[in-house]
Amino acid sequence: MISFELLLGVAIVAGFVGAMSGMGGGIILIPALTLVGIDIKHAIAVSILSIIATSSGSASAYARDHITNLKVGMFLEMFTIIGALVGASITIASSTRPLYIAFGAVLLGSWAALLFAGHASWHASTQDGFTRWLELEGSYPDQALGETISYKARRAYYGAPAMFGAGLIAGLLGIGAGAVKVLIHDLIMGLPPKVSTTTSNLIIGVTALAGTSAYLAAGLIDPGLAAPVVLGVVLGAFLGTRLLVKLTNKAVRRFFLVVLLVLAVEMIIRGLRG
C-alpha cells in the first residue's frame, strides 16, 4: 500500500508541472505514478479521471471569457469521444509492455515538439463550403490587442478524422493529448492560437469522460487511488496556473526538456525489459 501522502505529493507536483508547462497533468503524472509502484493501467485510468477536473476547471474560465468556440468544440467532440472509447478498449485488452513503449514514444514526441517549438503566425484564411455549412467561425475579445478578432475555420473534413486520432491517443494513454488537438486546430483548421488552445481544453474534458467510463467499467478506477490523485492534480494545476511561469523562461524550458527525455527513456527501457 503506497502512502496517501506520497500519492498526494506526486499528484501535486504533476499537476503543477503540467499546468506550468502547458502540457497537461497526465504526461508527468503517469510516469511518476508508475515510478512509485502503481500499475500502468491503473495510472492511466486515474490520470484520465483527473483530466476531467483540470480541463473543466480551465475550460470554465475561458468559456465565460467568450474565447472558446463552442461549435468547433462540439462538432469535433463527436470524433474524439469515439477515438477515446476505442483507445481505452485497446489499453484494457493490451499487456503492459506495449503501453510503456507507446507512452515513452509520446513523451519523446512531446520532447521534440518542445525542442522545435515555434510560434506560427496566424492569419485569416478563406473558408470552404463544408466548414461554412458547419458554422465554424466566430470572434473573440483579445485583451492584449484591445480589439475583437474575427476568424473563420476551414478544412473541417480533415480536422474531424484527425480528431478521432487525437481522441484515440487520449483514451489509449490517459492523457489530454492537448498538444495534438492544438496542432489540428492550428495547422489544419486555421484557428487563432487562443481559440485553438481554449477550445481544445473544452474538448479534452468530454473526451476524458468517454475514456474514464471505459476504465470504470473495466474496474480500473480505484477510489483509494483516485481521491488523493485527483485532489492533488487539481491543487497543483491551480498553483501552476497562478504562478504562470510558462515556457518563455529559458531555464524552465530546459528543465522540462531534461525531465521529458529522462521519463521517455525510462518508460521505453521498462517496456523493453518487461
Binding site: A53, S56, G57, A59, S60, A61, Y62, A63, R64, H66, T68, L70, L202, G205, A227, P228, V230, L231, V234
Partner: peptide
C-alpha cells in the same frame, strides 16, 4: 458560453469539495 462556464466550474468545485471532505 457563460452557462457552460458555470456548469463546469460548479461541477469541479463540488466534486473536489466532496472528495476533500470524504478524505
Amino acid at each position: 458560453d457563460v452557462l457552460v462556464g458555470y456548469i463546469l466550474q460548479t461541477g469541479v468545485l463540488l466534486s473536489m469539495a466532496l472528495v476533500g471532505a470524504g478524505l
